[in-house]
């Protein structure tokens, strides 16, 4: 079923390193993933796992100090990493849009929100009247009431939920095929979070925009996404359809992550937490499994041999517990 769909974004063996103390330390290590049109894909992991870095690399927005060693990113068949600055600029906002976690800091406090949305449209070639019209219709599409009045209000006059809607409208005004959403609901209250989630789902259905959702919250992911990639210390440890991952996790890290989530159902039990912490950039092993030092099921081979992704029960897992079938 998914084979028939067109691949929008393909990341192949992406490596992103930082130079710390004369040594290259990887923030993203050999990440490959594909997003098809109209799909919602999630990158899930704890802070420092490289999920945001991967997304920024797709936008060409990785920090100056970052070094992309190996890997290719294809967007609609075109290779991105060898692009000129100019080409990046036309791609951003038109081909791929990105929204960030903090809805307050992503808006200019001194410019009317309508103008800010409109400007994004005009940057990509819309005429003045056309831009205004599509701004108003986009504001309606993201569920804002009374758009005529809201058009000329300032960010501080709006609540967090409304600001996030404005940002989504801004990101989608040029009708990009792909939206990257970096923790779009984390800073919001749960009831507002729910509104934004259902909005994103609606927009995905109506406009057909593919969404790459970056989140640490498996709850959000499970209700929004079709496909999920679990990241740990710069590598993808497991990926597959969201219900498969949640119901039948294979990788010890995924299991630990799911076991760590508190819920009423686990009352009066201890949570299966993962001991230790995510290793910092400098302390990540060059070879072997990244999860080795925290894994409860580690074996001798885990320390020295990097695991390869293998297909198991309909999803991919990179762990020596699941060897490639000969």
């Amino acid at each position: 079923m998914e084979k028939e769909r067109k691949a929008i974004l393909e990341i192949e063996h992406l490596h992103l390193d930082y130079r710390i103390g004369g040594r290259f330390c990887h923030a993203v290590h050999d990440v490959s993933l594909t997003i098809h049109s109209g799909e919602i894909l999630a990158l899930v992991g704890e802070s420092g796992c490289g999920k945001t870095q991967t997304a920024l690399a797709c936008m060409g927005l990785q920090p100056e100090s970052a070094h992309i060693g190996k890997g290719k990113i294809y967007f609609e068949g075109r290779e991105l990493l060898s692009q000129s600055k100019q080409q990046w600029n036309t791609l951003r906002g038109k081909g791929i849009s990105m929204i960030f976690q903090e809805p307050m800091t992503a808006l200019n406090p001194l410019v009317k929100v309508g103008k800010q949305i409109e400007e994004n449209g005009r940057n990509h070639g819309l005429g003045k009247i056309q831009a205004r019209e599509s701004t108003l219709s986009m504001m309606e599409k993201v569920g804002l009431p009374d758009v005529g009045r809201l058009y000329s209000s300032y960010p501080h006059q709006l609540s967090g939920g409304m600001r996030q809607r404005i940002i989504i409208a801004m990101a989608l005004i040029n009708d990009p095929p792909l939206l990257i959403a970096d923790e779009p609901t984390t800073a919001l209250d749960v009831t507002i979070q729910k509104q934004i989630m259902s909005l994103m789902k609606t927009l995905n259905k109506e406009l057909g925009t593919a969404i790459m959702l970056i989140s640490h919250d498996l709850g959000v992911v499970s209700h929004l996404c079709d496909y999920v990639h679990i990241m740990y210390a710069g590598t993808i440890v497991e990926n597959g359809p969201v219900h498969m991952i949640l119901n039948k996790p294979l990788h010890p890290y995924t299991k630990g992550l799911l076991g760590s989530i508190p819920s009423y159902g686990k009352k009066d039990q201890r949570l299966d937490s993962i001991a230790g912490i995510v290793p910092s950039l400098e302390n990540r092993p060059q070879v072997g499994c990244q999860f080795y030092n925290r894994c409860t099921q580690r074996m001798a081979s885990c320390k020295n041999i990097s695991p390869h992704a293998t297909m198991r029960d309909g999803h991919m897992v990179a762990c020596h517990l699941y060897p490639e079938e000969a």
Partner: peptide, 11 residues
């Protein structure tokens, strides 16, 4: 806190 650390602290 991150989920896995959150679980440690809750425990």
């Amino acid at each position: 806190l991150d989920v896995s650390v959150q679980a440690q602290v809750l425990n």
